[in-house]
């Protein structure tokens, strides 16, 4: 039974600040988007560009059905992330997933954290998991695909980059 056991040291030195800045663009854009999404607001008119993919530009309704417990855990996770405690942020998301395992937004946030931790394999797979729970919410699907795209780029996997880019193009031109 192979286990991904992690030892905790007192100082959570898991965040490489320099790398973080490098990934800031996608991470911050996505975070902003999702933060808004999770509190159930309507995103007005702003145009967001992630790696050539344009999202927004009109009035878009996003998921507003988040339970208070989940909102609370997402906030708590975000606070940990903001404080640089990415692993703790992921742990809080795991707790949220135990409550709502099919919530694509929680999976998406997990993908963000894994990406920030430069754990690209897990970033891809959690973003992909998020997409299995997205009905027609192309916005979240696109965000997940963009995390996958950036992860594959970081891994230097040009085949997958091409494949994901094609999927993103399909969303843009349905």
């Amino acid at each position: 039974m192979a286990q991904g056991y992690i030892q905790i040291s007192k100082s959570f030195n898991l965040l490489d600040q320099k790398k973080m800045i490098g990934f800031a663009r996608i991470f911050l854009v996505a975070s902003t988007f999702l933060l808004q999404a999770c509190v159930g607001t309507q995103i007005q008119g702003e145009e967001v560009v992630i790696d050539g993919l344009t999202i927004g530009g009109g009035q878009q309704s996003v998921n507003t059905q988040t339970a208070p417990a989940i909102s609370s855990l997402l906030d708590q996770s975000q606070e940990e992330v903001n404080a640089g405690n990415l692993d703790e942020g992921a742990r809080v998301l795991e707790r949220a997933l135990r409550i709502e395992p099919s919530n694509p937004e929680i999976w998406h946030r997990m993908a963000q954290i894994k990406f920030s931790q430069t754990d690209y394999a897990q970033a891809v797979v959690t973003a992909s998991r998020s997409n299995t729970f997205v009905d027609n919410n192309s916005q979240l699907r696109a965000l997940n695909l963009s995390i996958m795209l950036e992860s594959y780029k970081a891994q230097g996997d040009s085949v997958q980059v091409g494949r994901v880019r094609a999927q993103i193009d399909n969303i843009q031109q349905p």
Partner: peptide, 16 residues
């Protein structure tokens, strides 16, 4: 004191 935990880890082995 927290010593260690088993974080969620997944791997996609088949198409959904």
């Amino acid at each position: 004191e927290p010593l260690g935990r088993y974080p969620l880890s997944i791997e996609q082995v088949a198409q959904p």
